[in-house]
Design a protein around this nucleic acid. Structure first.
Lengths: 209, 209
DNA sequence: TACTATACGGAACGATAGTTCCGGTTGTCA
DNA sequence: TGACAACCGGAACTATCGTTCCGTATAGTA
């Protein structure tokens, strides 16, 4: 196994290479195209329905048979992982960027808003970060760890700057934001303002007066 | 259909009565016992695993066959509803009590802590109030509405007392707390302190300095 | 004790979803 | 252009779960 769970090593442009650079025939053009179609379809379907979306729905949306889908991704989980990994990378990058900013307090709170925004309408990410019944796989767990590290740095720096209350942990912060995003995605929580909920969390994270 | 979805009208003690008091033979002793066993088992199983727990697991834990279970509750949903309804009643009562207290601010925040506590290890309640893929049925929806009303009253009174920021809605508050409880139930969120997360939310709900 | 309405148990059924298999198709290269 | 490896599609298999059915057991009663 390798990147994104693909059966065959492949870069975005359809090139392929063996483990130690041994020349391997590149993927056929139709295979490259189908792989991309599957990823695009999966992104939409998983975002809209979360992990529980049937694999057939992805195949149908991509306009390929399930057999084709399984040729590219050995299991549903591998496909899901590929999607989530991409999304997580963006978050990790945002966290890393925030951890470097000079205005530690503002950096942290602004990251939280970005974070909540990126979770909006992304049931896949919400499921991966906060729902039950999902075994975050090694790769995702690693990414999630990176995310935590970035947040940890931001918190410690914001703490030192007196912008955040003492003793808070990254997991607590992430749990808070993921939780409220999960709630706002539900139909019953239609009229609620995610913006305001994030505000409440941010306000609560500031040091007590 | 009637109370708690039972096939036969039944009170807690095993008495039964028709719609207009027409004498109906009481449930057999073994039926009464099994009904209780099923409810007890369902309470534990649903609390531990949420709605997605297999019905067979409940039957097995109760020590009865599935046929027996279905004799008492027409669908899995009816059984789930019976459990959740009981739990919701407690919450509604707590909310109503809080809405009457003189110290509006403290009443509200103390309710939130109670609320979070009652959600702890109760995956059924968390699922019913905050997870996806569950159609809250009429009776539960009514109860949830009562809960919201109680919280609304507390909020408005706390607002008037200057203890809570303006413009917050019950749904936002409930979403925040349900969300954080959902997060803390996950294995990955092992080391996190739900206590502190509730604190953060409470602090954030106070009026800005 | 004998009778019967009531209740019980669990095999069996139908639906859903993940995964495998294989006959047919097609891109690629000589 | 011919040949072959890679690829495709979707039927079929497997597992899980909610629900139904029906032959058997038993509590309650005369």
């Amino acid at each position: 196994m390798n990147e994104a769970g693909a059966t065959t090593a492949v870069r975005g442009d359809g090139e392929a290479s063996g483990a130690e650079g041994a020349p391997v025939r590149p993927m056929r053009a139709d295979a490259v195209r189908n792989r991309r179609l599957i990823l695009e379809a999966a992104e939409e379907v998983f975002a809209a329905q979360g992990v529980s979306a049937p694999i057939d729905a992805v195949a149908e949306r991509a306009g390929v048979g399930v057999g084709t889908l399984y040729r590219h991704f050995p299991t549903k989980e591998a496909l899901f992982e590929a999607i989530v990994l991409t999304r997580l990378e963006e978050l990790v990058a945002a966290a890393a960027a925030g951890a470097e900013r000079d205005d530690a307090g503002e950096a942290f709170f602004s990251f939280l808003r970005t974070f909540a925004g990126k979770l909006s309408n992304k049931h896949d990410l919400i499921d991966a970060l906060g729902a039950e019944g999902i075994d975050i796989k090694s790769r995702c767990a690693g990414m999630a760890g990176d995310l935590e590290s970035g947040v940890e740095t931001m918190i410690r720096r914001a703490e030192a700057a007196g912008a955040v209350r003492d003793g808070i942990t990254p997991k607590e912060v992430l749990g808070l934001v993921v939780g409220l995003c999960q709630a706002t995605e539900r139909p019953e929580f239609d009229g609620v303002s995610r913006q305001r909920m994030v505000d409440v969390v941010c306000a609560g994270l500031r040091p007590p007066a």
